[in-house]
Structure formats: structure tokens, C-alpha cells
Design a protein around this nucleic acid. Structure first.
Length: 305
DNA sequence: GGAATAACCTGGATGC
DNA sequence: TGCATCCAGGTTATTC
């Protein structure tokens, strides 16, 4: 389940291999991996072949590779990707055997590293790649990690910056949270409030901040929201330092290696196990068609409003 | 306009 | 052993 730390590990792994590389061939094995691309597989292949990748950038859970301009097209473009639930971007040798669940392959030629293949594999096909135009950022700050250009793919423009982005506005986050009449966990998962947070890190940050996931967001004080944001950042930074969270083969870096943060979890996936703070069992409840894990002793249920 | 919900999707786990 | 069912969850379209 790739969230911000996992996607950042992938971006950082891709960056040195793709920056300055030319895409020499594109192979689409499964059209479903192009659900965000408007022109279909043939258009995707034709649009990318021969283009030079300028960087590897990320905002929240979205990745993009800005492309050098092409003759006759004024708009700046990028390959934008989302890993969904089970997507992987892998670096392989040119001509390497087709991966299980491989959907798209980009063969590239790098001036220093030679020939490589960027493989997009995805078991559940929730992820996708697309060619998209770049649009200016409203605040004129860089679009995200890995780029100094003040632009983002149009498909990414609607989501907020992520909490590790230097241009993230703590004040805007606090104001947005305190306007919401929904449960705080729902708000944390809302990518237009803050991007990059998924089910795992939402549970972990709420546990760390001792906030019950069903607390109505606007009932939280500004100080509590500030504390929660600090815990969000802490859990994301720790997960990033440990290479992300891997429960199975669903998340790996570009070399196919797993992360270690699963060993540092306090709430997510620990149903029935003792809370590392108070010793009482962690509980799991169904929430928004998914799971929510918390300590009912440390994270008191909110009183009815 | 804000909030809630369903649908998309595949493979592993579980139960019968 | 084989089949059916459940579950995992990020995003988006739809509904209320």
C-alpha cells in the first residue's frame, strides 16, 4: 500500500536512472494501466518514444517525470503515475524477462548508465500511467519533491501539498481541518487537505497524537491540530528513513527490496496486540469501507456533540 | 457545496 | 481438493 514514504523511496530510486535518459521504446501490455491517459495505448507509445526525461518528481502519492519539449507542441508535458494499491516501478536490465503483473515497460537510454528498462507492474490495476500537461502552481513554489519547476501535472493540481513539502502551509491545514464536520481520520485521508497520508499513517499519527479516529475534526482545538500535524510529519519521516512499510511483496523499491517500517507500527495491523504505551489491546473497527486501528484507552472515544 | 458511499480490481486467506 | 466468499484500500464518480 504505497503512501508518501513508499512513493518517495521509489522516486529517489528512479531519479538518478531516468534523469537525462531518452525513452527509446514503450510497450503497453495492459490498457487498464492507462486509465488516466486520454489517448489510448498507441497514443501513449507514440507520444513518449524519443522523449528525454528531465527529472523524477513527487507530490503526495503521485509521481511524474517531466519531459523535454517536443517540436510543434507548446505545452510542457510529463509522464504522471500513481501506484494505487499494488503498483511497482522497477528498474531492470533491457531485455529482462517480463515481470509478473507487468503492465507497461519503458526502455530508456541513459548517457551515463546505458540501457535500462523502467517496468510498471501492478497486481490489482488500481495504479496507472499517463502523459499529462504541466500547469503552473498557484503559489509559484516548486511543484513537489525532486523538481525546482513551479508546475505540476494537471491531474495532480487538485491535491494539496504533502506535510513534508517545504511549501506546505500549516495554517491552511489547520484551517481546513477546523472547517470539517467529518471524522478526523476521514479528513487525514482527504488528499485535498494534505496529500500522501493513507490508512496506515493516518492510524499511526492518530495513535501518536492520542486522538480517536472518529473525533469530529472541527471539535479539535488549533493546538491539538498542530500536535497532530507534528505527529503526521514524525511518522512519515521515520517511515521514510526506514524505507517504507512492507507487509508482503506489494511494496518494494525500484530494486525489488522491502522496507522495514512495518516493525515500527504501533496501531495499524496490530489488532489484539498490546498497545505499546498502555498495554491494553489494540482494536480494529470498520471505517469508510476499510480498517481503523486504535487503542481505546489512549484514544478516548469522543463525547457526542 | 459538503459529506457519504459504491465501484473499480486481484490474489491470498478462510470456511465449507 | 475445489469452490465460494471475504478482505485489503486509493481514487473517483455518484448520490444524498
Amino acid at each position: 500500500m504505497p503512501e508518501l514514504p513508499e512513493v518517495e523511496v521509489v522516486r529517489a530510486g528512479l531519479e538518478p536512472a531516468v534523469t537525462g535518459a531518452t525513452i527509446v521504446a514503450v510497450t503497453v501490455l495492459d490498457d487498464r494501466a492507462l486509465t488516466r491517459h486520454t489517448g489510448g495505448a498507441a497514443d501513449f507509445e507514440a507520444t513518449l518514444t524519443g522523449r528525454v526525461v528531465q527529472a523524477a518528481a513527487r507530490r503526495g502519492k503521485f509521481l511524474w517525470l517531466p519531459l523535454a519539449a517536443r517540436e510543434g507542441v507548446a505545452a510542457e508535458e510529463a509522464v504522471v503515475g500513481h501506484l494505487g494499491m499494488s503498483g511497482q516501478l522497477l528498474l531492470r536490465a533491457t531485455g529482462a524477462a517480463v515481470e509478473r503483473h507487468e503492465r507497461i515497460r519503458l526502455d530508456i537510454q541513459h548517457p551515463a548508465h546505458g540501457e535500462l528498462a523502467v517496468v510498471f507492474a501492478d497486481q490489482r490495476t488500481f495504479g496507472s500511467l499517463a502523459v499529462d500537461r504541466l500547469v503552473p502552481t498557484p503559489d509559484a513554489a516548486p511543484g513537489g519533491w525532486g523538481t525546482s519547476e513551479p508546475s505540476v501535472p494537471s491531474q495532480v493540481a487538485h491535491i494539496a501539498r504533502d506535510p513534508l513539502d517545504p511549501a506546505f502551509s500549516d495554517r491552511a491545514f489547520r484551517d481546513a481541518v477546523r472547517r470539517k464536520g467529518s471524522a478526523i481520520k476521514r479528513v487525514l485521508l482527504d488528499q485535498t487537505v494534505a496529500s500522501g497520508i493513507g490508512n496506515i499513517y493516518a492510524d499511526e499519527a492518530l495513535w501518536a497524537a492520542r486522538i480517536h479516529p472518529e473525533t469530529i475534526a472541527r471539535t479539535l482545538s488549533a493546538r491539538t491540530v498542530g500536535r497532530l500535524l507534528a505527529e503526521v510529519r514524525a511518522v512519515l519521516e521515520k517511515a521514510l528513513a526506514e524505507g517504507g512499510t512492507s507487509f508482503d511483496a506489494q511494496y518494494v523499491n525500484v530494486n525489488g527490496q522491502a522496507g522495514y517500517f512495518a516493525h515500527s507500527l504501533h496501531a495499524y495491523g496490530r489488532t489484539g496486540e498490546p498497545c505499546t504505551r498502555c498495554g491494553r489491546p489494540i482494536v480494529r473497527v470498520s471505517f469508510m469501507n476499510r480498517s481503523s486501528h486504535f487503542c481505546p484507552h489512549c484514544q478516548k472515544e469522543p463525547r457526542p456533540v
